[in-house]
Design a protein around this nucleic acid. Structure first.
Length: 392
DNA sequence: CGTCTTTGACCTGCGC
DNA sequence: GCGCAGGTCAAAGACG
């Protein structure tokens, strides 16, 4: 069974390969770094794997990463559903259902006909104790059904939101009373701060570092990344009061892949451009869009410009405060989503259960992903998976 | 002139 | 405490 799945996986990869290579101008064969989502169907932890190599080799992501991590090709020009469009929809819908303002990207609504896949892995381990982390993981529905994932993820997020509120209330109480030592307060504030912002990461096959989604970003920093020849750039949404940040980093192993990580949630509608153009303000979908963008955005249509380029193949990593989420876009030509099904993730031609086969990958420096996926989460995931495997 | 990028300095967290 | 790395600040310059 597992063998067959692997074969299917391989075949799927071969199908994807032509486009993959076609869309890269780099000398590096991107096809050898194509990522594929592998997730354990039993506990919904997703992992990365590559074509005849593991993802960790191309993105410094441990194979045991609990990431809901996907690779999909974006048939850009004829694909009406860019991943950013999707993200916007998700943001809107999820935001509509979420009453929390303290979490960003906390919502990736699942629609019954989409294959958004969520994991319920805790994101901000500094907030959650080990027990809490386990608790979140254990709340993961056993059904691979995307909607279940979504619902569960949302609930998990709310749970943590509630926890955060509780912490804050306690902290307020401390402030009003003599109880609580300074170190304790400091620790609480620290935890609260760390837990506040959720992150969403996208892997995009692109020649352009600064992808454009229509939001306006101001670059406020750039840092060299350890073990990577490519620097990491830091951007902040220029809209007053909007604290959304994004980090852009190019994969050192596959320079054709740009990793964009968003942190926070836009507090404003889809932005008007600096030249006075209105970017799809009429669409409520965009109200909560979380996107990538270049600072010189001036487009008036919702479609992110960079996705209109033929050189972009986004991967999605949805990273919630309390869960890693993934949006999978299959390589179907119409850009529609392919439901991964109960066990086999056809969009990637591999079985999610495969993930459990590679838990021994070394944890190295993970670059941007290292920030998104903390070592604790990784180790917890490994431990959790190992325990489950032992139980089988 | 407003906006944005660049870049060195600074701050913070973490491991040893 | 020290060093390292990530993240942020802010002054200076570029650009339209």
């Amino acid at each position: 069974m597992e063998k067959k799945i692997k074969e299917d996986h391989h075949q799927e990869l071969q199908k994807e390969e032509p486009n993959s290579t076609k869309n890269t101008e780099t000398t590096t064969s991107s096809s050898t770094h194509m990522m594929n989502l592998i997730t354990t169907s039993d506990h919904h932890q997703m992992e990365l794997a590559g074509n005849n190599m593991n993802l960790s080799s191309s993105f410094d992501i441990p194979i045991s990463s609990p990431f809901a991590y996907s690779y999909f090709e974006d048939h850009s020009s004829n694909n009406p559903n860019s991943f950013l469009d999707l993200l916007r929809q998700d943001q809107h819908q999820f935001a509509s259902s979420s009453n929390s303002s303290s979490f960003s990207f906390n919502a990736f609504p699942l629609q019954n006909n989409t294959n958004h896949i969520f994991t319920d892995l805790p994101l901000s381990q500094p907030v959650t104790t080990k027990d809490e982390s386990s608790e979140v993981v254990s709340t993961t529905p056993t059904s691979p059904n995307a909607t279940s994932f979504s619902s569960s993820s949302n609930e998990a997020a709310n749970d943590n939101i509630n926890k955060e509120v509780t912490v804050k209330d306690q902290e307020d109480g401390d402030q009003h009373g003599p109880k609580g030592t300074k170190p304790q307060l400091k620790a609480k504030k620290k935890q609260q701060k760390k837990a506040r912002e959720a992150r969403v990461a996208f892997l995009t096959k692109s020649d352009i570092d600064n992808l454009d989604d229509g939001y306006r970003w101001r670059k406020y920093g750039q840092k060299a990344v350890k073990n990577s020849p490519y620097p990491r750039s830091y951007y902040r949404c220029t809209t007053v009061g909007c604290g959304v940040k994004k980090r852009v980093e190019r994969s050192s192993d596959d320079p054709s892949i740009v990793m964009t990580t968003y942190e926070g949630q836009h507090t404003h509608a889809f932005p008007m451009t600096p030249r006075g153009h209105i970017g799809m303000l009429t669409s409520p979908i965009l109200d909560h869009g979380a996107t990538t963008a270049s600072s010189s955005s001036s487009f008036s249509i919702p479609q992110p410009r960079y996705l209109l380029s033929q050189h972009h193949q986004p991967y999605n990593i949805m990273y919630n405060n309390n869960s890693l989420s993934m949006i999978n876009r299959s390589s179907s030509s119409d850009g529609s989503f392919v439901n991964p099904g109960s066990s086999s993730f056809h969009g990637f031609g591999c079985d999610m259960s495969q993930a459990s086969t590679s838990t021994t990958a070394a944890i190295r420096d993970h670059g941007l992903l290292q920030d998104i996926l903390t070592s604790k989460i990784r180790s917890d995931t490994i431990n959790t998976r190992t325990n489950e495997e032992d139980n089988k």
